[in-house]
């Protein structure tokens, strides 16, 4: 039993030695290693940055969902007295969160403020705008079927001239979001492939450079696993370092873009707060890098080591 434990200790010690040896090899070829790590980090940072952007768009669209409203344009002869009864009736509907009545005069006043067409409006013989009821829909009822059903029911009232819910922009936003997700998926796949190729090619060159050493190790009874080990650890280091540098690239991007984004959101008087997801990214990026690094090294060693035999 002691013997097995002792062997395990030796085995783990060898792994540690090889791991540090591989890091030393990267250090000895500093320029090449730095370039490889930078290519990997950019390939990881780009989809991560787009993912962050998409998550924020999603957050914005959710906020807009929450304030989604239906505007009811009433018949021209709809009176303020009728409005009280009508709004009370609507308020009792389970899909509706809040109802706000706006007289035709208030509508005209708002339009005057927004359009700046004072002179033209003053010359009108009477107010052409109808009274309006603005309905806030409950968050859990914000789905196309419920909203369509609600619109049909509201338009069924004789007092209602037109019920309007502009779903097109929401559909467009969701479509952009969906396309963005797909695009990021494709981009992530392509960039992951480029990481595989970059690391794989670096490992391939390293194998070629160490051909004579590999032959000697094979001659003295080294197994393929033993020979693979330093190359797999090299892939591990490339991936891990690439992931960490990618995280710093995101940090730098955040430092550069935070102020302009905050300024932009303030201009729109929005409560929106851009999320950078830096905490999950510091784990996700190096882990993705490590997985890609080890996988590409494994492919490279599998493809090239078997061809190197002593002769």
């Amino acid at each position: 039993m002691n013997h097995i434990r002792f062997n395990l200790k030796v085995y783990l010690l060898r792994h540690l030695q090889v791991m540090l040896f591989s890091l030393g090899q990267l250090w000895r070829q500093l320029l090449t290693s730095t370039m490889t790590v930078l290519v990997i980090s950019i390939s990881l940072a780009l989809p991560a940055g787009l993912y962050i952007l998409l998550q924020n768009i999603k957050q914005v669209s959710n906020q807009w969902n929450y304030v989604s409203q239906i505007s009811l344009f009433m018949e021209y002869n709809f009176s303020d007295r009728q409005a009280n009864t009508f709004t009370n009736k609507l308020q009792s509907w389970p899909e509706i969160d809040a109802v706000k009545y706006q007289t035709s005069n208030k509508s005209l006043e708002n339009f005057r403020k927004l359009s700046g067409l004072d002179d033209l409006l003053n010359n009108l013989p009477n107010n052409p705008l109808p009274a309006t009821i603005i309905i806030n829909i409950k968050k859990d009822s914000l789905n196309p079927d419920t909203i369509n059903n609600l619109l049909i029911r509201l338009e069924g009232f004789a007092e209602v001239e037109q019920a309007q819910f502009d779903m097109e922009w929401l559909k467009r936003l969701r479509s952009i979001n969906k396309t963005g997700q797909l695009g990021i998926g494709i981009l992530t796949t392509l960039l992951s492939l480029s990481v595989l190729l970059v690391i794989g090619n670096t490992i391939r060159l390293s194998i070629i450079n160490r051909q004579s050493e590999i032959k000697v190790i094979k001659l003295v009874g080294g197994t393929n696993n033993f020979i693979n080990r330093p190359f797999l650890y090299a892939g591990f280091w490339f991936g891990a370092l690439g992931g960490i540098v990618a995280w710093f690239i995101l940090l730098l991007t955040m430092a550069l873009l935070s102020a302009p984004i905050n300024e932009l959101t303030l201009l729109y008087n929005s409560q929106f707060n851009f999320q950078w997801f830096l905490s999950p990214m510091i784990i996700a990026l190096p882990i993705s890098g490590i997985i890609l690094g080890i996988f590409s090294s494994w492919i490279a060693t599998k493809s090239y080591l078997s061809n190197i035999e002593p002769h």
Partner: peptide
Amino acid sequence: IPYYRRQIGLVFQNHYLL
């Protein structure tokens, strides 16, 4: 093969040293 080669000592003219 690697385990088999551990049972054999090999000496070559062109050394194969690191």
